[in-house]
Lab assay of single mutants.
Amino acid sequence: GSPGIQSFLPPGWEMRIAPNGRPFFIDHNTKTTTWEDPRLK
């Protein structure tokens, strides 16, 4: 199987799917959430 997208996120980050189907990202380091992919910064 191919590695999940989770493995490509920075340490402490998690990806979830919102009720509307959009992915969002949780930064457990700062306890914040964002719509922006942290890998694109």
Results as ranks from 00 to 15, higher is better:
Gly1Trp: 13
Gly1Ile: 11
Gly1His: 12
Gly1Gln: 12
Gly1Glu: 11
Ser2Ala: 14
Ser2Asp: 14
Ser2Tyr: 09
Ser2Pro: 14
Pro3Ile: 13
Pro3Glu: 13
Pro3Gly: 12
Pro3Asn: 13
Gly4Asp: 14
Gly4His: 13
Gly4Met: 08
Gly4Pro: 14
Gly4Ser: 10
Gly4Glu: 14
Ile5Gly: 14
Ile5Glu: 13
Ile5Lys: 12
Ile5Asn: 13
Ile5Gln: 14
Gln6Ala: 14
Gln6Met: 07
Gln6Ser: 13
Ser7Leu: 12
Ser7Phe: 11
Ser7Lys: 12
Ser7Trp: 10
Phe8Ile: 14
Phe8Ser: 15
Leu9Ala: 01
Leu9Cys: 05
Leu9Ile: 04
Pro10His: 05
Pro10Ala: 05
Pro10Leu: 08
Pro10Ser: 04
Pro11Gly: 08
Pro11Ser: 12
Pro11Asn: 11
Pro11Ala: 14
Pro11Cys: 15
Gly12Met: 05
Gly12Lys: 03
Gly12Ala: 03
Gly12Arg: 05
Gly12Gln: 04
Trp13Leu: 01
Trp13Ile: 02
Glu14Thr: 10
Glu14Leu: 04
Glu14Trp: 02
Glu14Gln: 06
Glu14Arg: 03
Glu14Phe: 05
Met15Arg: 06
Met15Pro: 00
Met15Gln: 06
Met15Val: 08
Met15Ala: 05
Met15Gly: 01
Arg16Gly: 06
Arg16Asn: 04
Ile17Leu: 12
Ile17Thr: 08
Ile17His: 07
Ala18Trp: 04
Ala18Arg: 05
Ala18Phe: 05
Ala18Thr: 09
Pro19Ile: 08
Pro19Ser: 10
Pro19Asp: 07
Gly21Tyr: 01
Gly21Ala: 02
Arg22His: 08
Arg22Gln: 10
Pro23His: 10
Pro23Asn: 07
Pro23Ser: 08
Pro23Val: 14
Pro23Asp: 02
Pro23Ala: 11
Pro23Met: 11
Pro23Gln: 10
Pro23Ile: 13
Phe24Gln: 06
Phe24Arg: 03
Phe24His: 03
Phe25Arg: 00
Phe25Leu: 01
Phe25Thr: 00
Ile26Val: 09
Ile26Asp: 00
Ile26Gln: 02
Ile26Pro: 00
Asp27Tyr: 05
Asp27Met: 02
Asp27Ile: 01
His28Ser: 06
His28Gln: 06
His28Trp: 14
His28Glu: 05
His28Met: 08
His28Gly: 06
Asn29Tyr: 09
Asn29Gln: 07
Asn29Gly: 06
Thr30Phe: 05
Thr30His: 07
Lys31Asn: 14
Lys31Ala: 12
Lys31Gly: 15
Lys31Trp: 09
Lys31Cys: 15
Thr32Ala: 07
Thr32His: 08
Thr32Asp: 03
Thr33Leu: 13
Thr33Met: 15
Thr33Cys: 15
Thr33Arg: 13
Thr33Tyr: 15
Thr33Asp: 02
Thr33Val: 15
Thr34Gln: 08
Trp35Val: 03
Trp35Arg: 02
Trp35Tyr: 09
Glu36Gly: 06
Glu36Met: 10
Asp37Val: 05
Asp37Phe: 07
Asp37Leu: 05
Pro38Thr: 01
Pro38Ala: 01
Pro38Arg: 01
Pro38Lys: 01
Arg39Val: 05
Arg39Leu: 05
Arg39Lys: 02
Leu40Val: 11
Leu40Lys: 10
Leu40Ile: 11
Leu40Pro: 10
Leu40Gln: 12
Leu40Phe: 11
Lys41Glu: 15
Lys41Gln: 15
